[in-house]
Design a protein around this nucleic acid. Structure first.
Length: 750
DNA sequence: TCTGATTCTGCTTAT
DNA sequence: CAGAATCAGA
């Protein structure tokens, strides 16, 4: 027997089929935990070793840099002789940025474009709205931003905006879109969507360039294919048009980016564009216990927008799913922290094997507080991002300007930071000239520096700035990015401008700048030909996941969106409340099923222990508010669930019992009546009996109530969430009245 | 032009 | 509650 084949061993028949599939379009439908990453990395290795592909002939797109890094690492493990840099495995955005750096001049753009992040985009939109005289009340900048991005995803230019929205704002939005495009392109910036869009345009308009890339990339792979959007799919189709060598992996139950244009349709349409495609299904789960998997299957089966697939596992039954209930959000966080502590002590689960997932990043703070008070190590992924801090963005803006002085967006950020006497009036004048002449802001300050345009004080301030920028720009190619950083920081006296270094606030800002400096040095160390341009590109495409330091024994805190693709022995999904976990805004937009998929993604990250927590009072806008449990909780069959009341449970004792098999979900007959706080009266405990799970969800429907004004009646309907929650009560005389729950003063009759 | 204080407004999710 | 916008006053 020959030595076991590292690429083809330890695969089940379906996995083997997927790895070794012929060079035709292959759609791998891979359920959660079914070995998706294993299959895709081995296929890459297989193509290189057994099919004669050179590493750089494979274009493999992922959705996060983290996933790309992991994929690369595992391919290199399989093929140790392949240098890391030869593998073109990266996010769509990075791959496109790389192509555009080389080719965008063909579209008449400068190749040293900068990448505008979301905030830059928003400030650009506000800016052009001011110039167009459209007030922020007429059109909300955030809405305009959303519309612009959606158009770009759908490959619609401003003139065809009407195909995406139809409203009386249409003209204004089209005008904003057009002005925005002119503005950011004049400052030679591209936004995130442009990276994809421009690449598609390049390939569409320049057949010669497309042919070159089709000949270069002989095989295209896409991970998390269910999250691909129109423009990305268009790109994939262009690249593979000549050879159809394509492998995609996806799971429609894990589509969670439809707000970014992801559409299940693309999996369905795969067949339309690639009729000769073969499909391989991976349905065996190797990750979760039977209990967890059954719970997840039960939840996702409530969705209608899916193929029916049921995952199975051969792993043991495991512990019940724990549903933790608390009185308020702080108590919930406290209980989660205590439970995590006990699970680590008594079940030996390392903190690095635990994760806390939440729907909105804002929830992290409460959990951080509680974890800190128990002295437990944790790491927040995302949240208030390092690269979003003002001082970090300032210094990066200086570097952007040094690299490309025509970057108006960045120049605007730093033109008066630190203060150098260039106020709104002066800046307005300078911008006005720039616009009239169709040049950049830098051109107009260069002109103003010659004198005669501005008051003397402003002229000398401007001249000094121009001089500095010229020097930095000249140094930008000869000096290392870290050297330039230090020089700029010194030249402008940034540290001093922050104020008294004895202040905590100032000290932490200085520390952040030191950390930024260190990260630049680290980048230079690991990148052989580090340039300012390559560093800035790297920074702007960095996702929060990539910032987290690996390897420490700490609990991971992150949003459900970022959890995709990861796994942990123990998972807490917190804030399982109606309005938060099916997020009210998402439900309003008709995305209940997507919220359920999000919940499903979270559940299926757990290998052994799954804890779902909720609370009855949550603080919003500083006010405590009654919240219902998430309806998703009721979709888990009760024999799989063990309810835990945070206020009445000693966690140490509980986990002890749990680990000795003494805690089991109660059978139907011995389950105590659920008790809950009713929305109508925050302090009155209402006992609820004989209610089916369905009516529990809508709480009061079907109940008799008494109201001081209308007397007795029956609740016949309810809707809305949180503050907006309402009930319709039908009086005994047949009249109907609608109440907002937070104002309704009725009592429930038993 | 800059500052600090006060009022206003609004929490998804992220490359 | 917290960040943004706005305003008074130097």
């Amino acid at each position: 027997m020959i030595e076991r084949d590292r690429i083809l061993s330890a695969l089940n028949p379906q996995q083997l089929e997927a790895v070794t599939a012929p060079d035709v379009p292959v759609l791998i439908v891979a359920g959660a935990g079914s070995g998706k990453t294993r299959v895709i990395t081995r296929r890459v290795a297989f193509l290189i070793r057994d099919r004669g592909y050179r590493p750089w002939q494979i274009f493999a797109a992922t959705f996060t840099n983290k996933a790309a890094a992991e994929m690369k690492r595992r391919v290199v493990q399989l093929l140790p002789h392949v240098p890391d840099n030869d593998l073109h495995i990266a996010t769509f955005h990075s791959l496109c940025a790389r192509i555009l750096r080389r080719e965008i001049t063909a579209l008449g753009f400068s190749s040293n474009f900068t990448i505008a992040d979301e905030r830059d985009q928003l400030s650009a939109i506000k800016h052009v709205m001011r110039e167009l005289g459209i007030s922020e009340k007429e059109v909300k900048p955030g809405y305009a931003q959303e519309v612009i991005n959606q158009c770009k995803i759908r490959l619609l230019d401003p003139l065809r905006l009407g195909e995406y929205i139809e409203s009386r704002y249409e003209e204004q939005l089209a005008a904003i879109y057009e002005a925005y495009e002119k503005y950011i392109h004049a400052s030679s910036a591209l936004d995130f969507e442009d990276l994809i869009l421009m690449t598609v345009r390049l390939f569409t308009e320049r057949a010669d360039v497309l042919t070159r890339y089709q000949e270069k990339y002989l095989h295209v792979m896409v991970d998390e294919f269910q999250d691909i959007n129109d423009s990305q799919f268009a790109l994939v189709r262009l690249l593979t048009a000549a050879h159809h060598h394509l492998t995609v992996v996806g799971d429609e139950d894990q589509t969670i980016y439809s707000w970014r244009g992801a559409d299940i349709r693309h999996i369905l349409e795969f067949e339309k564009y690639y009729p000769e495609r073969i499909v391989v299904r991976l349905e065996q789960n190797y990750r979760s216990t039977q209990t967890i998997l059954n719970a997840a299957n039960a939840v996702i089966s409530h969705n209608t927008e899916r193929f029916n697939k049921t995952l199975f596992t051969e792993l043991p039954k495991g512990l019940p799913v724990l549903v933790l209930q608390a009185e308020n959000d702080r108590e919930e966080a406290r209980a989660v922290a205590e439970l995590a502590l006990e699970l680590s002590r008594r079940l030996g689960i390392a903190y690095s094997e635990m994760a806390i997932f939440y729907r909105t990043a804002a929830l992290s703070r409460t959990y951080e507080e509680q974890l800190r008070s128990l002295n437990m190590p944790y790491r927040v992924v995302g949240g208030v991002r390092f690269y979003d801090r003002a001082e970090v963005k300032d210094m990066l803006a200086y570097l952007q300007v040094a690299q490309n002085p025509r970057n108006t967006l960045s120049l605007l950020r730093i033109i008066n930071t630190p203060k150098r006497g260039l106020g709104d009036k002066t800046i307005g004048k300078l911008l006005g000239w720039a616009r009239q002449r169709g040049t950049s802001l830098f051109d107009s300050i260069e002109n103003a520096a010659k004198g005669g345009f501005l008051p003397a004080a402003a002229t000398s301030a401007v001249a000094a700035l121009v001089e500095k920028i010229r020097t930095w720009h000249a140094d930008s190619t000869s000096k290392l990015p870290s050297e330039l950083f230090a020089q700029i920081r010194e030249d402008i006296g940034y540290d001093e401008s922050l104020g008294d270094p004895e202040q905590m606030e100032v000290r932490s800002r200085l520390e952040n700048l030191d950390e930024l400096y260190n990260s630049i040095v680290a980048y230079e160390r690991e990148t052989p030909e580090a340039t300012l341009a390559s560093y800035l590109e790297n920074v702007s495409l960095l996702s929060p996941v990539d910032e987290a330091k690996e390897g420490q024994d700490a609990i991971t805190l992150m949003t459900l969106h970022m959890a995709k693709g990861l796994e942990f022995r123990c998972v807490f999904i917190v804030g399982c409340n109606e309005g938060l976990l099916p997020h009210a805004r998402s439900v309003e937009e008709g995305h209940l099923e997507e919220e359920r998929r999000l919940f499903y993604v979270g559940m299926t990250r757990a290998r052994e222990v799954l804890v779902l927590s909720h609370c009855s009072h949550r603080t919003y806008y500083g006010e405590p508010r009654y919240d219902f449990p998430s309806p998703f909780l009721e979709e888990i069959p009760s024999p799989l669930v063990l309810h835990v009341d945070a206020s009445r449970t000693n966690m140490a004792r509980f986990v002890h019992d749990l680990s000795h098999g003494k805690r089991e979900p109660p059978s139907e007959s011995q389950r105590p009546n659920q008790q809950f706080y009713d929305a109508t009266s925050r302090h009155e405990l209402v006992s609820r009996q004989n209610l089916s799970p369905r009516s529990q969800r809508s709480s009061l429907v079907g109940k008799r109530v008494r109201h001081p004004l209308i007397g007795e009646g029956v609740v016949i309907e309810s809707g809305g969430m949180g503050k907006e929650r309402w009930y319709v009560v039908e009086g005994d005389d047949g009249s109907r009245v609608k109440f907002l729950a937070r104002y309704a003063q009725f009592e429930v009759c038993e």
